[in-house]
Amino acid sequence: MKVIYNRLIPFKGFKCINLFGVLFVREGCFMSKHDLNHEAIHTAQMRELGYLPFYLLYVMEWLWHLLREWDAKVAYYAISHEQEAYDNQNNPYYLKTRKPYNQWH
């Protein structure tokens, strides 16, 4: 996965954003091996779903949870793609054994 450190993307207050498998990291932020694994899991999700469907599903699920919870942070952590990534970011072998569409299992 390509990692680009810069001052513009993501917006101030955010550490990184994964856009189409390229990781944009805010200059001055440190990416741990767990952070990189988390983003690699998202890249695997994007590849199996297709990039645009991934982002559409991601935003739709976030909006659904936001309407139910009225809390952006709670809605973010409730997204199935994030749950899979957070649950497995500390396992360096996860992507070798990951089953397709595991974010919904």
Rank of each mutant, 00 (worst) to 15 (best):
V74R: 14
E27P: 11
I9S: 09
L8S: 07
R7L: 15
Q83C: 01
K12T: 15
I17M: 13
L63R: 07
N37C: 05
T43C: 08
F14R: 05
M31L: 15
V59G: 03
L63P: 04
H42A: 12
D35E: 07
D87E: 08
Q45G: 03
R68T: 02
R68S: 05
Q89C: 13
V3L: 03
H34N: 14
Y77F: 09
G28Y: 00
K96M: 13
H34Q: 14
E69H: 14
F14T: 04
L67K: 12
Q83H: 00
L8Y: 10
H105L: 05
K96G: 01
K15W: 09
F30T: 08
K73L: 09
N90S: 09
W64T: 10
W70M: 05
S80H: 08
D71A: 08
L95R: 14
A78Y: 00
S80P: 00
K12M: 14
L56C: 13
M46G: 09
V59N: 03
L95S: 02
V3G: 01
R47M: 04
Q83L: 02
R47Q: 12
S80R: 13
I9L: 15
V59I: 15
K33M: 08
G28H: 06
Y86P: 00
H34T: 09
I17G: 01
M31H: 07
K96F: 02
D35Y: 09
E48F: 06
Y101E: 08
A40M: 09
Y76H: 12
W70C: 05
W104Y: 12
L67I: 11
E48C: 05
F20Q: 03
